[in-house]
Amino acid sequence: MTVHLRAHHLLCMLTYSGKGYSKAFVHNFDRLVQRIGAGEAIELLAGPDDVCAPIAGNAEEHCHCASVIERDRLAGSDLAPLVGVALAPGASLVLTAPLLARLRAAFATGRIRRACEGCPWHAMCTEVAKNGDDGTALLQCP
Protein backbone atom coordinates (compact mmCIF):
# COMPACT_ATOMS: atom_id res chain seq x y z
CA MET A 1 0.00 0.00 0.00
CA THR A 2 0.98 3.61 -0.43
CA VAL A 3 -0.04 6.76 1.44
CA HIS A 4 -0.97 9.51 -1.01
CA LEU A 5 -0.04 13.01 0.19
CA ARG A 6 0.12 16.46 -1.28
CA ALA A 7 3.47 18.16 -0.63
CA HIS A 8 2.39 20.52 2.15
CA HIS A 9 0.97 17.60 4.15
CA LEU A 10 4.55 16.33 4.49
CA LEU A 11 5.03 19.40 6.68
CA CYS A 12 1.77 18.91 8.57
CA MET A 13 2.67 15.38 9.61
CA LEU A 14 5.85 16.65 11.32
CA THR A 15 3.85 18.36 14.07
CA TYR A 16 0.53 16.52 13.85
CA SER A 17 -0.57 15.90 17.43
CA GLY A 18 -4.09 14.52 17.19
CA LYS A 19 -5.92 17.76 16.43
CA GLY A 20 -7.88 18.48 13.30
CA TYR A 21 -11.05 19.62 11.61
CA SER A 22 -13.28 16.79 12.88
CA LYS A 23 -13.18 13.43 14.67
CA ALA A 24 -13.18 11.65 11.30
CA PHE A 25 -10.26 13.82 10.14
CA VAL A 26 -8.25 13.04 13.30
CA HIS A 27 -9.02 9.31 13.12
CA ASN A 28 -7.93 9.23 9.48
CA PHE A 29 -4.72 11.22 10.10
CA ASP A 30 -3.89 8.95 13.05
CA ARG A 31 -4.11 5.92 10.76
CA LEU A 32 -2.01 7.58 8.06
CA VAL A 33 0.72 8.51 10.55
CA GLN A 34 0.81 4.91 11.82
CA ARG A 35 1.22 3.63 8.27
CA ILE A 36 4.00 6.13 7.48
CA GLY A 37 5.71 5.34 10.79
CA ALA A 38 5.65 1.65 9.89
CA GLY A 39 7.58 2.36 6.70
CA GLU A 40 4.82 2.58 4.12
CA ALA A 41 5.78 4.52 1.00
CA ILE A 42 4.45 8.02 0.37
CA GLU A 43 3.45 9.11 -3.13
CA LEU A 44 2.92 12.80 -3.82
CA LEU A 45 -0.27 13.98 -5.46
CA ALA A 46 -1.58 17.26 -6.79
CA GLY A 47 -4.91 18.06 -5.17
CA PRO A 48 -6.90 16.24 -2.49
CA ASP A 49 -5.03 13.34 -0.91
CA ASP A 50 -5.50 10.73 1.81
CA VAL A 51 -5.38 13.43 4.52
CA CYS A 52 -8.14 15.42 2.78
CA ALA A 53 -10.44 12.40 2.34
CA PRO A 54 -12.66 12.92 5.42
CA ILE A 55 -13.31 16.57 4.58
CA ALA A 56 -13.12 16.53 0.77
CA GLY A 57 -16.90 16.73 0.37
CA ASN A 58 -17.07 19.80 2.63
CA ALA A 59 -13.85 21.43 1.53
CA GLU A 60 -13.74 20.78 -2.20
CA GLU A 61 -13.11 24.44 -2.97
CA HIS A 62 -10.40 24.64 -0.29
CA CYS A 63 -8.50 21.63 -1.61
CA HIS A 64 -8.30 23.12 -5.11
CA CYS A 65 -7.84 26.80 -4.32
CA ALA A 66 -4.78 28.67 -5.53
CA SER A 67 -3.38 29.28 -2.03
CA VAL A 68 -3.34 25.56 -1.23
CA ILE A 69 -1.75 24.73 -4.57
CA GLU A 70 0.89 27.37 -3.80
CA ARG A 71 1.46 25.74 -0.37
CA ASP A 72 2.22 22.49 -2.18
CA ARG A 73 4.65 24.20 -4.55
CA LEU A 74 6.50 25.94 -1.71
CA ALA A 75 6.61 22.80 0.43
CA GLY A 76 7.93 20.70 -2.44
CA SER A 77 10.59 23.27 -3.22
CA ASP A 78 11.72 23.60 0.41
CA LEU A 79 11.68 19.88 1.17
CA ALA A 80 13.36 18.56 -1.98
CA PRO A 81 16.97 19.32 -0.90
CA LEU A 82 16.42 17.52 2.42
CA VAL A 83 14.61 14.56 0.88
CA GLY A 84 17.01 14.21 -2.04
CA VAL A 85 14.40 13.97 -4.80
CA ALA A 86 12.26 16.47 -6.68
CA LEU A 87 8.92 16.56 -4.86
CA ALA A 88 6.48 16.80 -7.73
CA PRO A 89 3.29 14.78 -8.18
CA GLY A 90 4.22 11.14 -8.71
CA ALA A 91 7.38 11.33 -6.59
CA SER A 92 7.74 8.57 -4.03
CA LEU A 93 9.64 8.36 -0.76
CA VAL A 94 9.83 6.39 2.46
CA LEU A 95 10.26 8.34 5.65
CA THR A 96 13.17 7.01 7.71
CA ALA A 97 14.20 7.96 11.24
CA PRO A 98 17.21 10.03 10.04
CA LEU A 99 15.10 11.82 7.41
CA LEU A 100 12.35 12.54 9.96
CA ALA A 101 14.96 14.03 12.31
CA ARG A 102 16.37 16.26 9.52
CA LEU A 103 12.90 17.43 8.52
CA ARG A 104 11.88 18.20 12.10
CA ALA A 105 15.09 20.14 12.73
CA ALA A 106 14.60 22.19 9.55
CA PHE A 107 10.93 22.78 10.44
CA ALA A 108 11.79 23.93 13.97
CA THR A 109 14.24 26.52 12.63
CA GLY A 110 11.73 27.75 10.06
CA ARG A 111 13.90 26.68 7.13
CA ILE A 112 11.10 24.72 5.44
CA ARG A 113 8.05 26.69 6.56
CA ARG A 114 7.33 29.05 3.67
CA ALA A 115 4.24 26.94 2.85
CA CYS A 116 2.94 27.45 6.40
CA GLU A 117 2.45 31.22 6.10
CA GLY A 118 -1.21 32.07 6.55
CA CYS A 119 -2.17 28.56 7.63
CA PRO A 120 -4.71 28.47 10.48
CA TRP A 121 -2.61 25.79 12.23
CA HIS A 122 0.64 27.83 12.07
CA ALA A 123 0.74 28.88 15.74
CA MET A 124 -0.07 25.39 17.01
CA CYS A 125 2.57 23.78 14.78
CA THR A 126 5.14 26.35 15.89
CA GLU A 127 4.45 25.48 19.53
CA VAL A 128 4.68 21.74 18.86
CA ALA A 129 7.95 22.21 16.94
CA LYS A 130 9.49 23.98 19.95
CA ASN A 131 9.07 20.75 21.93
CA GLY A 132 10.76 18.49 19.39
CA ASP A 133 8.70 15.37 18.88
CA ASP A 134 6.98 15.53 22.29
CA GLY A 135 3.27 15.19 21.71
CA THR A 136 3.46 14.38 18.04
CA ALA A 137 1.75 11.33 16.62
CA LEU A 138 4.63 10.37 14.28
CA LEU A 139 7.20 9.17 16.78
CA GLN A 140 9.16 6.58 14.86
CA CYS A 141 10.12 5.51 11.39
CA PRO A 142 12.21 2.58 10.20
Rank of each mutant, 00 (worst) to 15 (best):
C141H: 07
G135A: 10
P89L: 06
V51W: 03
A66I: 05
N58Y: 15
L139H: 14
A7T: 03
K19F: 12
G135W: 10
L79P: 00
V26P: 03
A41H: 09
E70I: 06
A101M: 13
A53L: 08
V128G: 01
C63T: 14
L100V: 02
G76W: 00
H4I: 10
G135N: 12
A75G: 02
R111F: 11
P98F: 08
C141G: 10
L10K: 01
A137N: 08
E60H: 15
D30I: 06
L103K: 04
A88E: 13
E127S: 14
L100E: 00
V51R: 05
T15V: 07
A115P: 03
R113T: 09
S77V: 12
R35W: 09
T136H: 04
A106T: 04
P120R: 07
V83M: 09
L11R: 01
S17P: 11
L32R: 00
I55A: 14
R35Y: 09
A91G: 04
E127Y: 11
Q34K: 12
Q140K: 15
H27K: 15
E60N: 14
D78F: 01
L95A: 05
S17E: 14
H62L: 15
F107Q: 03
V51M: 09
K19M: 15
P120V: 06
S92E: 15
R113Y: 06
A91F: 02
L45T: 14
Y21L: 12
I42L: 04
I55D: 15
S77G: 12
C141N: 07
A129L: 05
T96E: 07
Y16M: 04
H27I: 15
H8D: 02
L93R: 05
G76N: 03
K19Q: 14
L87N: 00
D49V: 03
G132A: 08
S22V: 05
G135T: 09
K19T: 13
H9L: 02
G110H: 01
T109E: 10
G39I: 09
H4A: 11
A53D: 04
P89E: 05
R31M: 11
A101W: 11
L139C: 13
M124F: 09
G90E: 07
D78L: 04
